[in-house]
């Protein structure tokens, strides 16, 4: 299926370089993403892990100054190819954001938003999608009696699970999560992590996290990103690179690079 011929890969990133205006944000990232596994991106602030994540579903296209070089293959097709519409990419590769961002609409309407975009009009069909998605996101039992309630009236953890249900409703194959639990309390964080573990049976999940315990707890693979600096004549330049990518166990138990070991050991910077 993919260029490498290995069907275990959901996505293959090849030599990805992203600029914001003239500023280099992340350089030369190449890595495969394994299908139906959880891959964690870790690294210090400014290392470009979110940039790489947002490049995978072409969210960076929304920033006018962003420029992407390199290729990202999904099902053998380059997502940055000429004939690819980013709208279709985002439907296939869903996203959950750092801060829960439900629409100021009812719970039902939040989940039905995506299917409606795709043209689903029949009430019975929408009902079905809403129920299935909320069940998948482990929120159904808590909200099934008042689906008319505003999504904003839910607690932070519930809101984030609503956002996950909303993403699931358009049936993506890959879910990108940008620090999905960083704005939540430990109990809500736990429920999100449990949810990820149950979702990974059917979905490929990529998660950006600052929390290394979280990466260890939930992920199968971990990519460690770090910062490179250059002393310019006028200003210091900083950009992100991929340092090491391996199974989570290998990254945390026997990292190959000194930089990785320093970071996960808390001896960074």
């Amino acid at each position: 299926m993919s260029a490498n011929g290995s069907s275990a890969y959901a996505i293959e990133i090849k030599n990805l370089t992203v600029y914001y205006g003239s500023k280099l944000a992340v350089e030369g990232v190449s890595m495969p993403i394994y299908s139906r596994k959880i891959t964690a991106f870790i690294g210090p602030s400014g290392c470009g892990k979110s940039t790489v994540l947002r490049s995978i579903n072409r969210m960076n296209d929304l920033i006018p100054s962003a420029r992407v070089e390199g290729e990202i293959y999904y099902r053998g097709q380059n997502l940055y190819g000429q004939q690819v519409d980013p709208v279709e990419v985002r439907r296939r590769i869903g996203m959950v954001f750092q801060k829960p961002n439900p629409f100021p609409k009812s719970i039902y309407e939040n989940v039905a938003y995506g299917p409606r975009l795709l043209g689903v009009r029949k009430k019975s069909q929408l009902d079905d999608i809403v129920e299935t998605s909320l069940k998948q996101a482990a929120l159904w039992d808590e909200v099934k009696t008042d689906l008319k309630k505003s999504g904003l009236a839910l607690s932070g953890g519930q809101q984030q699970r609503l956002c996950i249900a909303r993403a699931l409703a358009v049936e993506p194959e890959v879910i990108l999560m940008d620090e999905p639990a960083s704005a939540l309390d430990p109990i809500s964080t736990h429920s999100i992590e449990e949810l990820m573990k149950s979702l990974v049976r059917n979905y490929t999940i990529i998660i950006v996290t600052h929390n290394m315990q979280q990466a260890q707890r939930v992920s199968d693979y971990t990519a460690f990103f770090s910062i490179r600096k250059s002393e310019d004549t006028y200003a210091e330049k900083r950009w992100g690179v991929l340092v090491e990518y391996d199974t989570t166990e290998a990254i945390f138990q026997r990292p190959k690079m000194q930089e990785t070991e320093d970071y996960i050991g808390g001896r960074f910077g």
Binding site: L62, F97, N101, F103, Y113
Partner: peptide, 9 residues
Amino acid sequence: EASYGLGAT
């Protein structure tokens, strides 16, 4: 972003 992320035009 939430809307675009769901595949909205």
